[in-house]
Amino acid sequence: MDKHDERFKVANREALIGVGLALINFLWWFGFAYGLGSKPPEEYSYIFGLPAWFFMSCVGGFILMSVLVIFVVNVYFTDVPLEAKDEDIE
């Protein structure tokens, strides 16, 4: 059953990693957007022509997540067979 299958341990860990990534993504996105974007527009600073809040939150956040996802998948994700193993079939 579930508990004895090593593959599900791997799957559970990876699901938690997914939730963790989403949390980081949200905090970064929210923090920069409303942290830097809440002042009046005259006081905005700009990065590559875009308001800093937008650049950091949307462009920077996207780049950060891409890098994180590539890293996490390559380092922490494990290959497992998906087909049922013979001894598992009841």
Binding site: R7, F8, V10, A11, N12, E14, A15, I17, G18, V19, L21, A22, N25, F26, G61, F62, M65, V69, V80, L82
Partner: peptide
């Protein structure tokens, strides 16, 4: 952006 990795990691291999 989250959908790109969230669906496949959470539903995942299980």
């Amino acid at each position: 952006v989250v959908t790109g990795y969230f669906v496949l990691t959470v539903l995942g291999k299980k």
